[in-house]
Amino acid sequence: MLNPVVHAFDQLFVQHINYSDDDSAAVQKHVDSFIHELHGLSYSEENLPWLNRDRHLIVSSFGRGTHINPLKHVHLLICLNGESSKVTARGKGSSYIIRINEGAERFGDMINEQRELNSSAISNNFRREFELFPDAKNVSLSAEGGATYRRKGSLWVFNVIPSFFINQPKTEKSFYLVPNQHGNWQPIYPHQETAAVQAINHQHNGFMYDLIHIMKYWNREHDIPKIPSPLLEALVVNYCEAKPEKLTEFADLDISGLLRSIREHIQKPVMDPIGQRGDLNSLAEESRQAIMDQAFKDQLKADSARQFELNRDYKRSIEKWSEVVGYEFRKLARVK
């Protein structure tokens, strides 16, 4: 007899959590078309810089493959052509100034008297252009310093983040500069971050992504504050790195332990384990408390569900799991 708990988890991933290959291909086609439109804009509009076609990059959850269904955001680093402009680091390298060369075009209203490029001005210019699109929805400035745009009929929102690709041959380091919301620029390391996540996932036979997906689904199904993706992914990565045994295809075996880890760490600073973003935990105190309380309750329920399953009391196990991961789970189980 097929274990109905295993069957229900398999179907939960297939029907409600995982994003299908066909859907991913459709999004990629949409992304390619949108980037083509942006290049058309950069040729026709004087208030937008030239673009660097070879360095655009999809980042965040969709770029790393850690998104769940339905997809809500696609974060795009749209790489600008700085025309050999000078980049200067301020302080300890957390803030950068980009000074545009005298002969460079297309930066007229985005630079000051010292020819320093204002990142907020570029994002505003993208926003103004998006508002003119005939099918534009949800156009605004984003918290990440870019401009958002949703095409009518699409479920997801593009977050267009203007950026510059920086390559340092002497140090063999490369990174992107993106708006820091104060007019200057800050470095991010998306290639290194993705490689680090993939390496840890590989150490666990490719099953860490399942844990990330199920915990994003758990967060969505409960009436608690949303845990930002970078923070939630960091919590899962830390749990997996501390786990002596490798993960298996049965994600439910680790749900209780992961909820315990979230409960223990959500009140504390959570330093970025895969990049250089510092403390990722920007949640307010009341949000941290609400998440901690839910994680504690669901950890106990997950323990009970596992025990019922071991005792082959599948009906009670499924009842408990449905309280943890949502009531769709109960519909997917084949048990009387």
Rank of each mutant, 00 (worst) to 15 (best):
Y217A: 11
F250C: 02
K170C: 11
N184V: 00
Y217P: 07
E193K: 08
N219Y: 03
P179C: 03
Q198T: 00
N180S: 11
P225Y: 12
P225S: 09
L253M: 04
E245G: 06
I200W: 00
Q181L: 09
N205E: 15
L258A: 09
G206R: 15
Q168L: 15
L232H: 05
A251I: 06
P190G: 08
M208Y: 10
D254V: 01
E193M: 03
E193P: 00
N238P: 01
Q203K: 10
H213S: 14
L253C: 03
K173F: 04
N238S: 09
W185M: 02
D210L: 13
L232C: 02
P225N: 09
C240D: 01
L235I: 09
G183C: 09
D210F: 07
V160N: 13
Y217T: 05
P230Y: 14
K173H: 11
I224G: 15
R220E: 09
V237T: 01
K226V: 10
Q186D: 06
P179W: 15
G206D: 14
H182W: 03
C240P: 02
Q186F: 01
L177R: 10
A242R: 14
F165S: 05
H222V: 11
Y176N: 12
L232G: 04
Q192P: 01
V237F: 13
D223Y: 05
P179T: 13
N205F: 15
Y189L: 03
K243R: 14
A199L: 10
Y209G: 07
P162N: 08
K216A: 05
F165P: 00
C240N: 02
V236F: 03
M215V: 03
F250R: 08
Q198E: 07
L231V: 02
S174K: 03
L259Y: 07
A242G: 09
S174W: 06
H202G: 14
Q181G: 03
E245W: 05
G183Y: 08
A251G: 04
E172H: 15
I227W: 07
K226C: 07
A242P: 03
P187H: 05
V197P: 00
Q198A: 00
F164Q: 15
N238G: 04
S174T: 12
K173W: 08
K243M: 12
D252N: 05
Y217D: 05
Y189T: 04
T248R: 11
S229M: 00
P230F: 07
Y176C: 11
T194Y: 11
E172I: 06
P169S: 15
N219Q: 09
W185L: 11
Y189S: 02
P169C: 12
P244V: 14
H182R: 13
I214V: 09
E172W: 11
E221D: 04
P169V: 06
A196H: 02
I224T: 15
A251D: 03
W185K: 09
I161C: 01
F207I: 04
P162I: 09
K243Y: 13
L253F: 11
H222Q: 14
P228H: 06
I188V: 15
Q181S: 07
F250T: 10
H202W: 04
I214Y: 12
N219K: 07
G206V: 15
A234V: 00
F207S: 15
I161D: 03
H222L: 13
Q168I: 15
W218A: 05
P225K: 10
I188Y: 08
L258P: 10
E193N: 02
L247Q: 08
I166F: 13
L259T: 01
V160E: 06
N238V: 01
I200L: 04
Y239A: 07
Y176P: 07
